[in-house]
Design a protein around this nucleic acid. Structure first.
Lengths: 189, 189
DNA sequence: AATAAATAGTATCGACTCGATACAATATGA
DNA sequence: TCATATTGTATCGAGTCGATACTATTTATT
């Protein structure tokens, strides 16, 4: 029978993660996809915390994501704040309760156990391989990369050393360059 | 914020695969989990093609899997055959129609595109990393490995070179040693 | 040999997902 | 200014998935 080992591994990992995530969230009445959305919001920057950005990240439809976010808001894990300039936009901010929950549930117990038993060198190898696989998947299928500003071609530094986004024409703090952005684009090959 | 890069990558890959799989199966009225079950049945051996084995592989409950299999059977993608010795068991055999569908949908288009653009050397690196990650996850959490007989500690060879399973006390064909088995156990460390 | 316990599988129920469709509000552009 | 695009919400239906309850068969214990 046909066999693409990369696909087989990712499919299996994917299912295991889903089951683990379901179990972890069950105690708090959260579904895997809800945890993922919350997790994304904890690692994205202030230009990427809207429902549409979550939609693009998760690859679902905006209607579906709207429901997911409604649940998270009802559980007081995030709050919606209107944008000052564009009245169509909402910014989704994680609450203290949301952060605490993530700290507890993400990564899941299964993953924590496994990662602890891997030495630094092996971890680095795995990260590097996953990075390459994901980047290739996104690139060959014309999808957004959702990388951190640090690795974005729009990110530049001013004379005084401050970071600046050439696309959004906005200054960035050092911390912000470590967060993921929906507008991220890698260097041109 | 906390950040385990391995987890982040796997979570993201997992969601992308799920979305892609959903889209691929939608044309045929199949859900991601149904494709996964069918895929498993195409790469497992004759001792591992029962509903319970699928249940263990997917990590779900037997009730859930029973429904999944019912759908696949109704769509004539697999057939149920009673075991000759143990009347409680059913063996799930993929039909020609099922095989054809898998050929078409697994791996998904997204994955195929990406893998084609990776050279052999990078593919091997990724396979090796994924293999290590999955093995660690399964081992540290006491889960079954679902490996192929070829790498199983119960697999031995008789004087004439034939393969033999010491656990099930059954002879194996060469082809069978390339299929995954629910009883698989790696070498003792 | 009789009975208890374990194992494999199915059926049903309810909470939830997710795409599709329709809709309202705001922003952009000709 | 008016058409069009963008962001977001509401509702509906088919389907997932764990929980529970149940049957049938096998294995273990007395």
């Amino acid at each position: 029978m046909n066999s693409n080992p990369i696909y087989n591994y990712v499919e299996r990992l994917s299912e295991l993660l889903r089951v683990d995530s379901r179990q972890a969230g069950a105690l708090h009445g959260l579904q895997p996809v809800q945890l993922e959305a919350l997790h994304y919001l904890s690692i994205c920057n202030r230009y990427s915390d809207t429902p549409m950005a979550v939609t693009e990240y998760l690859g679902q439809t905006k209607g579906t994501v709207s429901q997911t976010l409604k649940v998270l808001e009802r559980k007081s894990l995030l709050t919606k704040q209107p944008d000052e300039n564009d009245k169509r936009l909402s910014h989704l901010k994680i609450t203290a309760k949301g952060k605490q929950l993530l700290q507890q549930l993400v990564p899941t117990p299964m993953f924590n156990k496994a990662c602890e038993s891997l030495d630094k060198k092996d971890q680095a190898k795995i990260v590097s391989a996953l990075n390459q696989l994901l980047a290739t998947l996104l690139k060959t299928n014309g999808m957004k990369s959702f990388g951190v500003c640090h690795s974005c071609r729009f990110n530049s530094r001013k004379e005084n050393g401050d970071y600046f986004c050439d696309l959004l024409k906005q200054p960035l703090s050092v911390d912000e360059t470590e967060l993921i952005c929906r507008e991220h684009e890698g260097e041109i090959a």
